[in-house]
Nucleic acid binder design. Structure first.
Lengths: 349, 349
DNA sequence: GAGACCGTGTAAAACGTTCTCCACAGCGAG
DNA sequence: CTCGCTGTGGAGAACGTTTTACACGGTCTC
């Protein structure tokens, strides 16, 4: 292979090296790399041979100074959420055979830190951004979207600046309520995320979910049973919510949650209180993550097609990056109920 | 005016703008930014005021052309592994109050794609790399480590080029075997990952784990019971392994696995075969991920202190990036057994 | 009082690309 | 023969930083 040039240590092969080796100008090499207009077949071949010979890889940072950087940045709050992993897979699969690389910024839940991460991505000259349910003020997102193509996943607030991909969470909530009602439940509680973020997102996934839940309860004439408990989407948050709900005067016979992991927290609470599932309590999660399907769990959940959402987001983003579309658009996915063994008919007690 | 070329409003604030605003040279501003030697107090204040005034943020790509980019790249195969999430948290916490940003490349399991991702990170001028159990040929890692400071997590193969952080997996295996033996088990099987990667890593985590297991079995005089089953670390892989092991002529009374998720697959197999845990089968995972602690699971597992491993890796990497150390080093963490309710005394059957 | 040295600041040369012009050659039309 | 067009290639100016090399004025030392 290249035993000869192995001697020189860490010297990168640059476009100039390629140009010299092929006996052409750097401009020509650049054109070939970007397959831009104005190169003859002969030129293309000559240059490509030189590129292969030298093992040239363009320096992304340098590219970023003038043109594209062929990098897509993804912001998410935490890597632990298996639903996000589905989205990421979708993004990756969509982009696999393109020149784009996906880099992930895991920012944590703190809005300020998320904002910092977004700025970092922009400073690093990402060609486009995919923000998964960002907690930063909407104004900031709008701001960065002006200069960097952006797709927001999760929040239903549309915009003419950024594109968005959402799941019809209201429909999802309806599916769950319908299912539970058809089993005979009437006292159905919802465990949702705290919607108190003072950041101008009006239609967060949790808000839309709650809305759908309330409408569905109303539709079934069960308004008076409706109650929403807000808590963090985590095992612990779910546990606390479960404890509160299940030790109330008139505990619900069914609990639906906005995230699988929270449902498992409720599960733990029920367990601790000596309630059996689904005999004494029916439990439904959301997102249908790998957790839900686990052997000892078998949680009824709502599938959001995270993979599809991810690939849709990636596709939309690339369209924008490559200037093939100049109007904002929204994509909405339809959720599907996956019934497993944590839901059943309520046993009178 | 036309809508097409509309709006290039967002002109970035550059170092030149700051320099002009402060009435100094760009070199001076640069020095202040990097707090380099040779600026008077007055100068520093003047420049910092200008920076604040204009909201200047250095352009990382441009920085990358000459100096640092203040970005650390992390390679991992899949985001789903909760253990990796712990490591990431550790990295993030360590770097939180520094100027560095962490970007994650999730490459999947294909070695070729992992290699491509590593190259991407290098091309994007990362200051340093943290590779979590990379599947790429060792030679390639050594190669990139020459030009970019690199920390390898997981593989026990040491090097004088890259730093490494590992868990004493052999000790971990010993802990598990000791625990199971003390409960009365003798027929203990290990479910490990396929070690057949032809990529020159001799001492992968799985290999060291198997080694530790075999030694421990030997130590207890249980050589003849020792058996290692290789499978992918996934729910499905664990299920298949469980099926094979548990339907054998002389099924083991205890199974330990190299990953929690695989243990849950075995759990599913046992469940399907009508075996109760821990009565008919004791089960131990590895990594003590959030999965293990889940209410319906309560899996005995080995804690690897992923958070600490991550922060150690980050600390070591920054030392290298900032040239505060020029010798390679290895850090080894000590594992700890966390006993939950999937292990118990074997019931003769 | 000459030289060496110090601390502070700047000018200008990189860094590796992209991209806008411009030059040139060949060719068809008038 | 000139003109204008077209298709191909290259020169060179950005892009926003860092860094080197040096200038300048002042102090210290002998």
């Amino acid at each position: 292979m290249d035993g000869a040039s192995a001697a020189k240590p860490n010297k990168r092969v640059t476009i100039t090296d390629v140009a010299r080796h092929a006996g052409v100008s750097t401009a020509a090499v650049s054109k070939v790399m970007r397959n831009a207009y104005g190169v003859s077949e002969a030129m293309r071949e000559k240059v490509q041979a030189a590129i292969a010979d030298l093992g040239y890889r363009p320096h992304a940072a340098a590219r970023g100074m003038r043109g594209r950087t062929y990098t897509i940045g993804v912001l998410l709050d935490n890597v632990r959420n298996a639903f996000f992993a589905d989205i990421l897979d979708g993004i990756r699969d969509e982009l696999r055979h393109t020149d784009y690389t996906v880099l992930i910024g895991a920012a944590g839940f703190d809005p300020e830190e998320q904002a910092r991460t977004i700025r970092s991505l922009v400073d690093r000259q990402m060609d486009g951004l995919i923000l998964i349910a960002p907690g930063t003020p909407r104004a900031e997102v709008l701001d960065t979207a002006v200069s960097t193509p952006t797709v927001v996943i999760g929040h239903h607030d549309a915009s003419d600046t950024y594109d968005s991909v959402v799941d019809a969470d209201d429909l999802g909530a309806g599916l769950v309520v319908d299912h539970l009602v058809s089993l005979g439940h009437r006292d159905i509680a919802l465990v949702s995320a705290p919607g108190t973020r003072a950041n101008k997102w009006k239609r967060t996934p949790e808000a839309v979910l709650s809305e759908g839940y309330l409408h569905a309860m109303q539709r079934h004439g069960l308004d008076r049973f409706a109650r929403v408990h807000h808590t963090a989407y985590s095992d612990d948050g779910g546990f606390k919510a479960g404890m509160t709900l299940l030790t109330a005067d008139r505990p619900p016979t069914a609990v639906m949650t906005g995230a699988d992991v929270a449902a498992l927290g409720v599960y733990r609470a029920a367990h601790e209180l000596g309630l059996r599932i689904p005999r004494d309590l029916s439990l439904v999660g959301y997102n249908n993550t790998a957790l839900a399907a686990l052997a000892p769990v078998q949680l009824t959940s709502v599938d959001q097609a995270g993979h599809t959402m991810g690939s849709a987001a990636a596709r939309m983003l690339v369209e924008r990056v490559e200037n093939r579309r100049d109007r904002a658009m929204q994509t909405t996915m339809t959720p599907r109920l996956v019934v497993r063994s944590t839901t059943g008919a309520p046993q009178g007690r």
